[in-house]
Design a protein around this nucleic acid. Structure first.
Lengths: 138, 138
DNA sequence: TAATTCATGCAATGGAAGTGCATTAATTGA
DNA sequence: TCAATTAATGCACTTCCATTGCATGAATTA
């Protein structure tokens, strides 16, 4: 059994051809992808299947959702040290307004945010927009 | 001439009945509203008009857009001290997962965010999710 | 192997954002 | 004040994304 398959099984995700493909696709990409990106890459497969596969990955916590403010939900594989379910370990995301790519800045933790009295903070979403390292060269 | 009308004029926004109504509606609400909320409040008016009114308000910088991660764009009147066009003065937003309301925490500035070498930060969006002061009482 | 559970594919829906065009209202200036 | 112009409103569409119901096919388990 290959690495990906073992990985999926370890997360109690039923192994199918489609899921292996999508999981590999996500790990090859080093940025967050939209559902439409996946559809484009697998144009033979049905949109619904891709959609539900991602949803399954999300539930099983091998993928996390990113709202980068473009209006389109993006998804990315959780890093080994990504505890996206925990509030204490939240990294930020960077959205490049030039090339449109969204990247997880896993090493950059979100500073502690103070909220007014009576408010209970449970989750923090932080997106920085600007020019990414590749685009800033030109 | 009333306060709202003078206010609109001072921002070189043409004064119409509709715009006065919407501006008042926004200032009465002390939370960010979705376009659908406005539609609901003014069901006699056309969706497009409401949409374009908000867009005009945005352009003239009396309203700022909030992406609270619900997938629906919210809008709120800028406070007198709200410089939503400047990157240096960005407040954060709080989204209550219980009552669904989104509130500007105008006093709470976003801490300086460090980005990796080569990245240029131009904008920051920070949304804290949790339970708001009203809901946390119960 | 039969029964069951789950994945996939197709079709359809609903919500939100946005655009083109005709009409109406407001403003300008003669 | 009236005509000309400019901008706001309303209607009809369109597009895009997210989501669901149902039928079928594959995989797992008893």
């Amino acid at each position: 059994m290959q690495g990906v398959e073992a990985f999926l099984e370890s997360k109690s995700i039923r192994v199918t051809a489609m899921r292996i493909l999508i999981c590999n696709f996500l790990s090859d990409k080093h940025e967050a992808v939209a559902l439409s990106d996946i559809e484009h890459a697998f144009d033979k497969a049905d949109r619904t299947t891709l959609y539900r596969t991602i949803k399954t990955f999300e539930e099983k916590e091998i993928v996390h959702q990113i709202d980068d403010g473009t209006g389109v939900t993006k998804y990315a594989l959780c890093e080994p040290n990504c505890h996206c379910d925990l509030d204490t370990d939240l990294h930020l995301h960077f959205h490049c307004t030039q090339c449109g790519s969204t990247i997880c800045l896993t090493d950059h933790k979100i500073p502690k945010i103070k909220v007014p009295k009576g408010f209970i903070a449970e989750h923090v979403n932080l997106v920085v927009k600007g020019i990414c390292d590749k685009c800033s060269i030109n």
